[in-house]
Amino acid sequence: MKTILFLAIVLVSGALAGTIHGVANLAIVEPYLDEAIGIENQNLFASGEEEDTPAFWVEYDAYRDWQKGGQVLAGAMLGTSMGALFGIVYALSRNVLPKGSDLKKSFTLAGVMWFTIYIIPFLKYPANPPTVGDAETVVLRAILYLVFIAISGFGVVGFYQLYKRLQSKSKILSIVGYAVFIGIVFVLMPANPDEVTAPMDLVNGFRAMSVVAVSVFWVSIAIIFGGLWHKLRPDTENSEIQN
């Protein structure tokens, strides 16, 4: 393994895919965030915490511009972070991923990770726009979400060990096993304690676009990572032998 090349591929593909994620958010998720924060502002005016003055809007616009720009940078950081996890799992599991090109392998792994550490946790703890969420429960919610992701992720690793040991005819059992396991965890994990107070149209639109944007990330990392690996082959070593 060419270590430096391997690390470079992992970090570059994660950062690029994350930047694409950030830009996708700007295009499709931001309108919902703006609408949700608009409701927050109206609540602030109604409660007298803020006044609806030009000065408020100048400050607000500058603040939102900073948040919007920031999230592309945050996307690159999150992408690099998730890409690092993807790279570790890919390097360790490459030999057992479906035979064929590295693009096929990276798509398979991205699909598994997308489903098990994003979609399943999302179904239990769906994303919420601003205005939804009680600040008092944020630590609890953060812990619940992370724990569920970890249980699902380690569950896959565990059932994968079973998958390796089973005869090919019974391999399906390990997948059924994971489904039963995560189904039980899904039911047992406590629900999000917060009430959704925002209009459901807004919340549902936000959630749908959020899923699309995160899915764009996973597709992007599969293409970029698989493509770079295929082209640069960090897993090969050229050596010259004298005959």
Binding site: M1, T3, F6, L7, V10, L11, M77, L78, T80, S81, M82, A84, L85, G87, I88, A91, L92, R94, N95, D235, T236, E237, N238, S239, E240, I241, Q242, N243
Partner: peptide, 29 residues
């Protein structure tokens, strides 16, 4: 004698690389 180029696929992942990536994952998240 003539040099022959061979391409060998190595599967071993350096533990150092795994540790670096794991740290990046945790800090970034």
């Amino acid at each position: 004698s003539s040099p022959t180029q061979i391409t060998k696929s190595t599967t071993q992942v350096p533990i150092f690389a795994i540790i670096v990536l794991a740290l990046i994952f945790v800090v970034g998240l």
